[in-house]
Nucleic acid binder design. Structure first.
Lengths: 249, 249
DNA sequence: CGCGTTCAACTGGTATGATAAGTTGACCAT
DNA sequence: ATGGTCAACTTATCATACCAGTTGAACGCG
């Protein structure tokens, strides 16, 4: 019995489609910073949709800081490298055609390496025994499903989610959300690459034990060792492919 | 002669206003997760605006992952702690009434402490002499404006911006953007608190020198020492006020 | 020529009302 | 209990106005 023989039918609204098209053009550089966007009326005619749909899409581009809008003048494209927030990561990692950007992947792993140790440390400071118990339960699940990479992956993600939920740091939590949303679409392609990290139950256990003792420093150390395994593995995998391009999911 | 005796006139569109109102209700917990949003027609009537404005606002809420929308049913409020991305930080730090959330401020400083060292390290690896030159120029400006906290603050922000621009890590860069957008609205209130860090030209110089040598480890060390100054200072300031509440700008 | 004024032709912002399409829950027949 | 029907919701989309701010070229005055 497969985990999901069926997948949700995709339903994309018109404004979603318009947003994706415009965002993709901007992120690919086809619409460079400073370039004025076509008028809403032009766009709606060119795309064959109502002007309301175009306006909704442009409002979202504005929120993502991809364009600046002002009444009376055309909307202009902004420099997303200087303006956009972390929520843009998923669109940057895999572009409109499903191609994976290796530089972005490297960047994400580096950021993960920077944050994960401190997430573990914060959890150790604030989590307490209750958190340690749920972490131990997850460790049991990991040991039970040691052979199934996909299951291990889910458990690992849940492990980190617990840590970040109980660390009391909302910035870490939001950043974790952004990174998770980037990770999930490509997790199947990533599982074999990260298997060394996924099977590193030693540091998972080390973190759990450190949380139980309230030992922030130990949690930080185990966290750092753990994610470095994955970072190195991905680094090696990327440098061999470097131009091939993995496919999401 | 003040730096800016005039400020830009604020112009908020109707949909912006609707968005802020709804987002504030959600972030304050007035509209808890799972709660269905009023129908678009109800909202437009209650707020006295046309339905298009409401729809644009809801599209933005959807993009921020504050609500889930599906045709035929009411939109429902999501749990932003579990869904939203880092771009939500500014709205969380200072709420609709301009009150500053101390826990959020602490979180941000912790995240800054986690990222800054690695940002400096990445810049040292990739920046080269060209970056070092611009950093030295900024150092000169800092020494020249040593007495003016506001100017120092601008220079420090530019210093870090240069580092993150040349580190070649787009995740760091986007996260930096998100944090900067959080920082700017309250920077005037923060300047006196962070003055110890702003006047720490020693570690700024250390980072610049490390960049010139391509010494990532030294850059990381100086970066860590530097931001820890500010983190400790804010920690102390917050624990004394703890319930007072600073005002932005 | 230089410089401000005017104004028509843009742009986005708001409003109204109609129709299509999907969801929900009560009701009913089997 | 199960599944079908249907009316009353909801959001999605559309078309067409008109309001409001920007822009640039044409104009006129010194």
């Amino acid at each position: 019995m497969a985990r999901s023989s069926f997948s949700a039918v995709r339903k994309e609204s018109l404004s979603d489609s318009v947003y994706r098209q415009l965002a993709d053009k901007i992120l690919r550089g086809e619409l460079p910073p400073g370039e004025p966007l076509p008028a809403e009326r032009e766009l709606s005619e060119a795309l064959g949709v109502n002007r309301g749909a175009v306006r909704e899409a442009i409002k979202r581009l504005q929120q993502a800081r991809l364009v600046a809008v002002r009444q009376g003048g055309n909307s202009v494209v902004l420099d997303y490298l200087a303006e956009a927030g972390l929520e843009l990561l998923p669109s940057l990692l895999v572009d409109g055609k499903g191609q994976l950007d290796i530089g972005v992947a490297r960047s994400i792993m580096a950021m993960r390496s920077a944050l994960a140790p401190d997430i573990a440390a914060a959890a150790a400071r604030k989590g307490g025994v209750a958190l340690a118990d749920t972490l131990d339960a997850l460790l049991d699940s990991m040991r039970r499903d040691a052979g199934q990479l996909g299951a291990l992956q889910e458990h690992a993600l849940a492990f980190w989610r617990r840590l970040v939920e109980h660390g009391g740091n909302i910035a870490f939590r939001l950043a974790f959300n952004s990174m998770t949303q980037t990770y999930v679409p490509i997790r199947n392609a990533l599982a074999p690459v990260l298997q060394g990290e996924l099977r590193d139950l030693e540091n998972f256990a080390g973190i759990a034990a450190a949380v139980r003792r309230g030992d922030a420093e130990a949690a930080q150390r185990h966290g750092r060792l753990h994610v470095e395994i994955g970072r190195r593995a991905l680094e090696q995998a990327l440098s061999t492919v470097e131009a091939g391009g993995l496919r999401p999911s």
